[in-house]
């Protein structure tokens, strides 16, 4: 499993997730094929590309919701799709996922949404859980909204609440589908800071689908670029480096907002 990224020949770097020859399809329609890249421990890894190129689909393949048409997904050395159900369950417990549309459970309050993973998977007492819930809500800027139902929140607030739920168990890997979409510039910046902070202080590996250029450059240190027309990846590596050094005009144009 060689890294295609020249920045990471560093021996300290450990591969956390490895994608090998992955092809994704809905029925007979191939969305992307021959994806090969490595997400390292402590990376903030950006999945980018035009709308509809298959970013959400790729995320669903990495988090085990969709089986690849061909190819493998490794978590450290475990091949996810060749593992038994117990190991798969164990691997999944290391994730937190924030879905594109939030996916909060609509019949539960925010506190109940965030408390559910905690009460299912830890031995904490109710008082500690509610303390943790308040703390997570404060981290995403929603302090005091414990008793709200998702339908009583704005779209951006739902996004942040969904982030709080994804962080509930302090997962090793956090997946975000468009974290910044629907947030005002200040909240989006706060979110970027939070993501950086989670990586720096808890060592969380972060995989984010986003096309907000500002946030790609502030937080991302590694990335993959999916192309719609050729239906495969055309670049991987540090986004800043790709912007300045990539030889592929499609990548440069995307990262420069169409200006060469």
């Amino acid at each position: 499993m060689n890294s295609t990224n020249p920045d990471f020949i560093d021996p300290d770097v450990q591969a956390h997730i490895t994608i090998e020859n992955l092809s994704m399809a809905y029925g007979d329609v191939v969305i992307q094929h021959d994806l090969n890249f490595t997400i390292n421990r402590g990376d903030i890894f950006i999945i980018m590309g035009g709308s509809g190129c298959g970013k959400t689909t790729l995320l669903k393949h990495i988090i085990g919701l969709k089986r690849p048409a061909t190819g493998n997904v490794y978590f450290e050395n475990d091949n996810y799709w060749l593992s038994g159900p117990d190991l798969q369950q164990k691997i999944k417990r290391r994730f937190g996922v924030m879905f594109q549309a939030g996916a909060l459970w609509s019949s539960m309050t925010l506190a109940e949404n965030i408390a559910l993973p905690l009460s299912e998977f830890t031995e904490l007492h109710a008082a500690e859980i509610s303390e943790l819930v308040s703390f997570k809500l404060a981290l995403v800027g929603l302090a005091g909204h414990e008793d709200y139902y998702p339908s009583e929140l704005s779209g951006g607030m739902r996004k942040r609440a969904s982030l709080a739920r994804a962080m509930a168990l302090d997962p090793e890997i956090l997946f975000f589908d468009e974290p910044g979409a629907g947030l005002d510039p200040l909240s989006a910046r706060r979110l970027d800071e939070l993501i950086l902070e989670l990586r720096d202080s808890l060592g969380t590996t972060i995989v984010a689908v986003t096309h907000e250029l500002a946030s790609i450059f502030t937080i991302g240190n590694n990335s993959v670029f999916l192309d719609t027309d050729s239906r495969t990846m055309i670049a991987t590596g540090n986004p800043l480096k790709l912007r300045n050094e990539s030889t592929d005009p499609r990548v440069r144009s995307f990262l420069n907002r169409g200006e060469q």
């Binding site: 404060a138 981290l139 995403v140 302090a143 005091g144 909204h145 139902y149 902070e197 202080s201």
Partner: peptide, 24 residues
Amino acid sequence: LPAGVRRLLDLAASSPTIKATSQR
């Protein structure tokens, strides 16, 4: 305290608490 702990505590503390209650 470890630097990460301090920063996360600050981040949580800097969020304004809106003591709002749900309608329901």
